[in-house]
Every structure is written in structure tokens, then in C-alpha cells.
Design a protein around this nucleic acid. Sequence first.
DNA 1: ATTGTAATTAACGTTAACGTAAACCTGTAC
DNA 2: GTACAGGTTTACGTTAACGTTAATTACAAT
Lengths: 135, 135
Amino acid sequence: MNKHDDDTTYAIGELAREFDITPRSIRFYEEQGLMSPSRTGQNRVYLNKDRVRLKLILRGKRLGFSLAEVKTLFDMYDSNPNSAVQLEAMLEMTEQKRAVLNQQLEDIQMLMTELDDVEARCREELAELKRGKIA
Amino acid sequence: MNKHDDDTTYAIGELAREFDITPRSIRFYEEQGLMSPSRTGQNRVYLNKDRVRLKLILRGKRLGFSLAEVKTLFDMYDSNPNSAVQLEAMLEMTEQKRAVLNQQLEDIQMLMTELDDVEARCREELAELKRGKIA
DNA sequence: ATTGTAATTAACGTTAACGTAAACCTGTAC
DNA sequence: GTACAGGTTTACGTTAACGTTAATTACAAT
């Protein structure tokens, strides 16, 4: 029996704490059509599949996907699971993100070099100040 | 004589086309205190130093810096480059940014790895589909 | 003189992803 | 029974970085 058994249920606050987000965010994801938990009376009850969905949403965000993009992927998966079309759409999206990340890497390298320059000039001027050359 | 000679001037539309942004954006950067081009009558005239600034702004954006953060950096660089206090403040700032950039590098590496995983699983499932194992 | 192109300021509109406040219900603890 | 800790809906507020008119100006060509 696993800790995250299939019939374990969660309140909204529990999930919020576990993933370090606010209940508001979770309700917002539902409002955007990304989750649809069941209810007990008026209270939301989350099953393990909902928890997994939430995890996927957050990972998507970390990967730089917007909620709308995540929803697109979910919808495709829900309507036609494991279809070649859906898988290829997914691949296309990851490729895109990869390109963005590569661009960012390049930019960071360049900025690092510039930081080196600025820093070097700073240190030089500081040294001259201390030698009293400018005072 | 370089193509981007020191006394070459640019109209706002030229810069916009060169960097593939709108004139509105350039005016907005000025409004935020990131640039201050000179004027001919009421028209903005950009020199090479302005062009360089714009380049830096856009690189900052690609790096995920907000315009406010870029402005902070500019202000530091512009203000009193000869005072020891300012120089050391600048050094501290660059060190901080360097730390942030290193963190971002790490994050990007991790995201890349995650993308690799997602992609690999996609390709596997696609392969199985094509072998007719699921059909 | 008119058309066209590029520039200007001013000011309201937009998007994403929630934050925040109000007013309410509800089960458990004391 | 009352306080409290959680849950609920509704709905307006927030931030960044521009977009999008509108109304006007100025110069260049036909």
C-alpha cells in the first residue's frame, strides 16, 4: 500500500501545502479547465489522478508553458490518448521550448562575459584610487 | 569608417525595424527612463550609444530581466563611475547578478534534462504506435 | 494642392496568473 | 453555544509591457 494510494483523497489545502502554492491557484486551474475534482457537498475532493494532474501543470509551468498551452496538451490527451497526432504535437512544443532555452543559454554566456569586463574595469579603477592616482 | 559610425543617426522607425520591435516599445523604454535620445524639433534622434543601449535592453529582456531591473543596472553604470563607493556597489551588484545567472544556468540544465525525458517517452510511444503494438 | 509616409502626445485597453476582500457555510473542540 | 479552522462563491484589483486608437504635425513627392 503506497503512501499515495489510488483511493487516498486530499482537501484543497493539503495539496496547496504539498506543492507550496495557494488554494486560489488550484481553484484557478480548475476555472481554466485544467482539472475537475469531484465534490463532497460543496467541498472539492481530490483523488490521486487530480494530484497527478496538478503535478503535470506545475511541471509544465517550470518548463515555460502557459496554462493555455498545458490545457491544449491535456485536451489533446483526453480526447485522443496516445495518438500519433498528440504525441507529435507534444514533440513540437518541446522542441520550441528547447530553442528558447538555448537562446537563453547563449544570452547568459554573453552577459557573463560582459560582467567580467565591467568587473575588471571596476577593479582597475579601484586599484588606481587606492594608489592615490586619482584621489 | 564603420557601418555603425559614431555619428550615424537613426530615426525611431529604423531602429524598430532593425531590432524587430515597434516604435511604441522604444518610446516606452524612454518613458521608463531607460533611454534619452536627443531631438530635432519634436522628433527623436538616436545616436550609436542609444542603439547600443537598446541592444542591451533587449538582451536583458531575453535573459528574463524586467525593465525595472535593467534600469537599475543602467543607473548604477551611469552614476558617478569614479567614486570608490559606487564602484564597490557596482561590484557587489555584478556579483549578485552573477549568482543569479549561475542559478539560471542550473535551472536551464535541469529543464533541458526534463525535456529530454518527455521527448524520449514521446518517441518511444510513437515507435510502438508505428510498430502496431497499440494500433 | 493633395496624397503619402513617418513622426508626435495622450490616454484608455489588453493579457496572464493569480491576489485579495467580502460574505457565507460547516464540522469539530471546548 | 460559540469560537475557530477550514472550505465556498463572486467579483474587483494588480503588475508588466506594451497594443491600439485618436488627433495632430511635418516633410516629400506627384
